[in-house]
């Protein structure tokens, strides 16, 4: 899913693109609100507002610098709180509900002298946890497809219920394809 964070680089073209996008979104939203509250014909007013709003950013792209920064900060904060909310839903709603059906893990205290070591079932080795789940089919670039394949193959169909939340969390990830690794230096 597409990230909600804007690219870190602020090239003129990106600033213009941002300003146009914001103008378009503001114009359409304004038109929709006016058409709902007053008259449907006022939708055109919102559309007329789009080029008017877009003009400053087209003429002076640098005016978009501050709004760009503020918008990205808001997006990051929104992403941070939303991820926490989604995680809470997963843990306190889905996992709790699924937990009612019992567990295949032995969670009770063992008898004296009895080992809790379990023979390893999955020989596919090198990867762990979520990486192992989404890398079921190396040829597929879609982690969602791999996740579905894993849940079907391993009889964990219940995990499909978590999938929409994982998709949303990934879309709210601030690191997703938009940020430059920290402490990297460019190529000299």
């Amino acid at each position: 899913m597409f990230s909600l964070i804007l690219p870190p680089a602020r090239r003129y073209s990106i600033l213009i693109g941002f300003w146009l996008a914001l103008s378009l979104f503001a114009g359409i939203t304004l038109g929709a609100i006016l058409s709902l509250w007053a008259s449907p014909t006022l939708m055109t007013l919102g559309l007329i507002a789009v080029p008017v709003l877009a003009l400053p950013g087209l003429l002076w792209p640098q005016v978009a610098n501050l709004p760009y920064e503020v918008w990205n900060k808001l997006a990051r904060e929104f992403g941070r709180y939303s991820r926490a909310w989604l995680m809470a839903i997963c843990f306190y709603v889905i996992v709790v509900a699924v937990g009612r059906s019992g567990s295949s893990l032995r969670l009770a205290r063992p008898d004296s002298g009895q080992s809790l070591w379990v023979r390893r079932q999955d020989p596919s080795g090198a990867r762990n946890g979520f990486d192992r789940v989404v890398a079921v089919d190396e040829s597929s670039k879609s982690w969602i497809r791999n996740f579905l394949k894993w849940s079907a193959r391993s009889s964990n169909l219940w995990a499909c219920g978590v999938l929409p939340f994982l998709v949303l969390i990934s879309a709210l990830d601030p690191e997703q394809d938009n940020t430059v690794p920290k402490d990297i230096y460019t190529l000299f």
């Binding site: 597409f2 990230s3 909600l4 964070i5 804007l6 690219p7 990106i14 693109g17 941002f18 146009l20 996008a21 914001l22 378009l24 979104f25 939203t29 918008w71 808001l74 997006a75 929104f78 992403g79 939303s82 909310w85 989604l86 839903i89 997963c90 709603v93 889905i94 709790v96 509900a97 699924v98 499909c160 219920g161 978590v162 929409p164 939340f165 949303l168 879309a171 709210l172």
Partner: peptide, 27 residues
């Protein structure tokens, strides 16, 4: 539980729509 969770997550989708829309359009 997932359906109930989605109802609880609906505000995030609604509030996040402007951010996603602007990011997508910018790109």
């Amino acid at each position: 539980a997932s359906l109930a969770g989605l109802l609880l997550a609906a505000p995030i989708v609604v509030l996040g729509l402007p951010f996603w829309a602007v990011a997508w359009l910018t790109k």
